[in-house]
Computed example of a mutant assay.
Amino acid sequence: MSPSCVSKKAGLLLFPLLSMSAITPMTLYASEPPKVCMVLDKGGKDDRSFNESAVLGFNRAIKEFPVNKTSKFVEPKNDAQISQFFRSFATSAKCDLIIAIGYNPSEYLPDLASKYPNKKFLAVDTNLEGKNTTKNIRSITFAEHDGSFLVGAIAAMKSTTGKIGFVGGMDIPLIHRFETGYSAGAKYINPKIKISTAYVGITPDAWNNPAKAKELAHAQYNEGTDVIYQVAANSGQGVFDSAEQMNKKSKTKHYAIGVDSNQNWINPKVILTSMVKRVDNAVYLAIKDFSNETFNTDHTTFNLKDGGVDWAYDEHNKKFFTDAQLTEINGIKEKIINGKIIVPDYYKLDKK
């Protein structure tokens, strides 16, 4: 797009030698507010987890900032739809900031960003720093291994059988990062604890298969596990259902741990806590920066120190914890923040 074309579109008088770097998103669309479009991961906006958190941040930003009211988000059902949505957003829909929620949708951004260098992109939960050749992608990731260490410690504290479990959604490095932190946190409390792990599948459909997750949870509970951490998006509901069902026929109490959003309210009888990732804040702040013309295209990680990840403690789960346990949990949190506990990061492990 030449500067002269921009001046016609924006209704501004620009000098012919004005460089594109001097043109901001709001300048380009001075005649109307910029449009923001978001592609969710499979599992949909009602997954009570990652996608739902993103939608909360999106809706809040659309209400508060000067962006086009035709801004929208979509819920793909398959990979073909993800690709179609992105192409439409970059062309006919004329979106100015395009957001990808989750590992799978974010993988489409590098190619799209290189084809449309005048648009801005946000990848949530994936670091695309090395693929950001046109410098128009902001990458947001989270220190999920640190938050998972905390809930792993909680699982070990609350386990009476010495056996805990992990049910992941899609078998990918990102979810192994959760698993690694969780295992380390549990062993910090009880070095002899036994940890069972299982994954729903190897395709994105694994995020939306509660029946399979329930089957995996049942298998772990039946082998003596009494706490399971689910990192499976909408599939995770199956783990909650399994714990509730097991408690109806067993004297042993079975519990689960939620993820991404604060899921404590979903089933307060079985959910000990949730490992919260503030996806809502990541989306909200990106839209805020874009509307304020301060949108950078760096990689940023949200962690325990800034509240980007944490464990959820509220009226729904406070009955599970003694004052001594709260002191211990928050002490572990402070040690991680201060560097006194170094949580193993799956991305940095020697996996030979």
Results as ranks from 00 to 15, higher is better:
N208V: 07
L17E: 14
G165V: 03
C95I: 07
D46R: 09
S92I: 13
E293N: 15
I257L: 14
A217Q: 12
D289K: 07
T180Y: 07
I287M: 01
L109I: 15
A219D: 06
L40K: 03
I172M: 06
S106F: 09
I193G: 13
S242H: 02
K352T: 12
E179L: 15
E52D: 10
K131Y: 03
N234G: 05
K115D: 11
Q84D: 11
T161A: 13
D298M: 08
A54W: 08
L326I: 08
G169A: 09
E244C: 00
V67L: 07
A256M: 02
G147C: 03
I98G: 02
I332Q: 01
K192V: 02
D345T: 02
M275W: 05
V167K: 04
A153F: 02
A143D: 07
L56V: 12
N51E: 04
P25K: 09
Y29P: 00
N338G: 09
Y255F: 15
F302D: 02
M1A: 10
I98C: 07
A54I: 04
G152A: 14
S250N: 15
Q325V: 05
N247C: 12
D205K: 13
Y229S: 05
D146A: 08
P204V: 12
W207E: 11
A10V: 03
I336K: 01
F86C: 06
D46S: 12
Y221N: 14
N51A: 10
M26E: 11
N338K: 13
K45L: 05
E129C: 04
D125E: 11
D205S: 13
